[in-house]
Design a binder for these strands. Structure first.
Lengths: 341, 341
DNA sequence: GTGAAAGCGCTAACAC
DNA sequence: GTGTTAGCGCTTTCAC
C-alpha cells in the first residue's frame, strides 16, 4: 500500500490515522484515543493539542477499527416489514432518528413475506451489531431465537406474542380496544362490528379481544367480520359486507387505520354511506391519512415518537446489563376524536 | 479476554474465528479466508473441508475485521428526508431492498430540516461506507462536497441541480411535465394552472417548466399558483384558490401526488367540486394513495423499483471504477390514467 | 494451491 | 496522566 510507505504524500482527502495525529500533537496514539473517548483520563492540555492536530489533519476515528477492538459496533439492525403501511413508515423514521440521536447507526432491513430470514440474521451477525429492533408485522421467530443464542440484544416493537425472554414494547392494546368500544357505545351505536384482518400479529388480536370484552360488559355482542391482510385493500373489500349491515346503530372497529381507511373510503365513495350518520367507524394508530379530509377518521392514537424513545432506552439498558431480566414496556394510547364516530 | 485464553471453553454461542475453523479443517487461516472469498484460488477439496468445519462451528466471517483490512465496508449511507411523503417511503424501501440484494447494507439516516449535516457526514465517514445514496428533498450540498473530497461514491436520486461531477438519476421530468400538459389538454382543458410548491428541488421545477412549455406550444398560458412545501397540507391550503377558479375548462397540475391529494381532497370535501367535471387534476409520482377511492388520481407514474435498480447499478459501477466519468441516468415515466382527468 | 507473516487502525492493560 | 505493548479477526502479498 503506497499510502503506508509514504504517509506524507498522502492526499488531504485520504483520512489521517491516530498515528498521524499523535505525531503532530507530540503525544502517543493512546492519548489520541483518550481524547476521543468520553470520560477517559487525559489532561485538558493534551486533549486540546490532540483535538487541534486532529482538526488540522481532518482526522476522524475509524469506527471499524474501534469496533474490531471493542468487539462491538454502533450498528443496530432495524427490521421492518413493508413500509406501504404509513404507520410502519412513521415508526421506522422515528426509530431511525432516535437511534442516531442515541449514538447508534440503524442498519435497515425491509423484509418481504417470503424472504430468507436466515440471510438477514447472517448479515446482522456478520457485522457484530450491538442490537436489533424488530417492528416487522411477522417477525420470524428464527431471528429472535438466533439473537438470543448469539446474545445480541433484541427489542420487539408492538408484539406481545413472543418468548417472554426478550425485551418488548407495545401500545396498550387493551386500553385501546376498550377506548374504541366506549367511543362507539357512547355515540349510541348498538350494532357493533369488528373487522378482523387475517394476521397473526398479537397486537391486532389483543385490540379486538379488548374491544369485544368491553362491548360485552355493556351488554353488546359484536360481530366479528374476517378480512384480508391489514391494509387498505382489505378494508375496501370489506365495504360491501359492512354496507349490507347499514343501520343507524352500526359501529365498526378496525384494528388498524390502514384497513379502516379502505373501508371508510369505499363505504363513502362506492356505497354512498353517510358517515357517521349511517355508520360509525373507528380506527387504530392515528396515521397522518386519518386526518385527511376524506376520512377524518376517529381513531386510537399511538405516539410513535414515544415508542421510539422507549424502545431505544430498552435497548440501551440491555446492552449495558445483558443479564437483566427482560422487560415488557407499554406505551399509553388515547382516543383521537374526529368525525367518524 | 478470557475467551482468547481458553478457546475450547468457548460457548457454542460465541462465534468462532477463522483460526478455529482452520484448525478443525486442518488448513491455514488463509485457506479459510479463501474458502469464503468468491473467486479465490483454493482447491475444491480444501474448500469443502473448510465449509464443513465452519458449519460445525457456526462460523461466520467477521465483516468488521474484513472491512478493517479491506479499508471498506459493505455499508451504504441511505439519506432520506421525512418519510411522511409516501413516495419517499416507497423509494427508501425499494432502495433498501435492492441494496441488500446487491450485497450492501443500508445505513439509514432520516434528516430533518434543521439537522446538523456535519454530523451525518461524520457518521458515514467514520464507518468507511462504500457509498452514499441521497434521496433527500434538500440534500445538503455539504454532504456532496465532503463525499467528493473523501472519494466516497455518491449517487443523487431525483435531483438534477447538483454538481455535474457526481452520478445522479432521476425520472424523466421533462417528459412527465409534457405528459401532464397533454393529458389535460386532450381532456379539453384550456384554463391550465400549475401549483408550484416552495421547494428548491429541481425535479419539481423541471416538471413545471416542461408543463408550461408544452402548454404554450399548444397556445395556452398556464397560471402558476404558489403553494407551501410539497405536501398534503399545502395542497389542501391551495384548494380555496383553485375552487375560486372553478370552470369547465379548469385543469390543475400538481408536481407531486402528495400535494395533489391534499388539493383534490379539499376540493371535493370542502368545496364540493365534481372532479373531473368541474376541474381536472393531475399529479406526479403515482403513490399508492393515488389509487384510493376518494382520489382516483390521474398521475405520472415513476417506477420506484426501476429507480432502485439503476441507482444501485450506478453506485456499483462507480465503486468499481472510481475514476469513470459521472453519469446522469434517466428513468422513464408514464401517464397513469385514472378518474381525475 | 497453500502457509507464513505482515498489517488494517484502534483500544485496553499495564507499567511508570 | 501518559506511553508501551499486545492484540481484535481478517486479507494479502510473497515464497514455495
Amino acid at each position: 500500500m503506497v499510502r503506508a510507505l509514504d504517509p506524507d504524500k498522502r492526499l488531504a482527502a485520504a483520512s489521517a490515522t491516530s498515528f498521524d495525529v499523535a505525531r503532530l500533537a507530540g503525544v502517543s496514539r493512546s492519548a489520541v484515543s483518550r481524547a476521543f473517548t468520553p470520560g477517559a483520563s487525559i489532561s485538558a492540555g493534551a486533549r486540546e493539542r490532540v483535538l487541534e492536530a486532529a482538526a488540522a489533519l481532518g482526522y476522524r476515528v475509524n469506527h471499524v477499527a474501534r469496533a474490531l477492538n471493542k468487539q462491538r459496533t454502533d450498528l443496530v439492525g432495524l427490521i421492518s416489514s413493508s413500509m406501504g403501511n404509513p404507520y410502519r413508515a412513521a415508526q421506522i423514521e422515528a426509530l431511525a432518528k432516535r437511534l442516531v440521536r442515541e449514538g447508534f447507526r440503524p442498519m435497515l432491513f425491509c423484509i418481504d413475506e417470503g424472504m430468507d430470514t436466515e440471510q438477514v440474521i447472517s448479515m446482522l451477525l456478520n457485522y457484530s451489531v450491538s442490537g436489533v429492533v424488530i417492528t416487522s408485522d411477522a417477525p420470524p421467530a428464527k431471528i429472535c431465537e438466533e439473537c438470543a443464542r448469539m446474545q445480541v440484544p433484541l427489542v420487539l416493537v408492538d408484539r406481545e406474542d413472543e418468548l417472554p425472554l426478550v425485551d418488548s414494547i407495545s401500545g396498550d392494546n387493551v386500553k385501546g380496544g376498550r377506548l374504541a368500544a366506549d367511543a362507539l357505545i357512547d355515540a349510541g351505536r348498538r350494532r357493533l362490528v369488528a373487522l378482523r384482518p387475517e394476521s397473526d400479529v398479537y397486537s391486532i388480536t389483543a385490540r379486538i379481544s379488548a374491544f369485544v370484552e368491553r362491548a360485552r360488559a355493556n351488554g353488546l355482542e359484536p360481530e366479528i367480520l374476517p378480512a384480508g391482510p391489514p391494509n387498505y385493500d382489505s378494508g375496501r373489500d370489506a365495504a360491501a359486507e359492512i354496507a349490507a349491515r347499514r343501520t343507524e346503530g352500526l359501529g365498526v372497529f378496525c384494528p388498524t387505520d390502514f384497513i379502516a381507511l379502505g373501508l371508510l373510503d369505499a363505504l363513502q365513495t362506492r356505497f354512498g354511506l353517510q358517515i357517521p350518520q349511517e355508520a360509525s367507524v373507528i380506527g387504530y394508530d392515528d396515521i397522518p391519512q386519518a386526518a385527511w379530509d376524506f376520512s377524518n377518521l376517529t381513531t386510537i392514537g399511538q405516539p410513535v415518537d414515544q415508542f421510539a424513545v422507549e424502545t431505544v432506552a430498552l435497548l440501551k439498558a440491555r446492552i449495558e446489563r445483558p443479564d437483566r431480566p427482560p422487560r415488557r414496556e407499554f406505551v399509553d394510547v388515547s382516543l383521537v376524536r374526529r368525525g367518524t364516530v
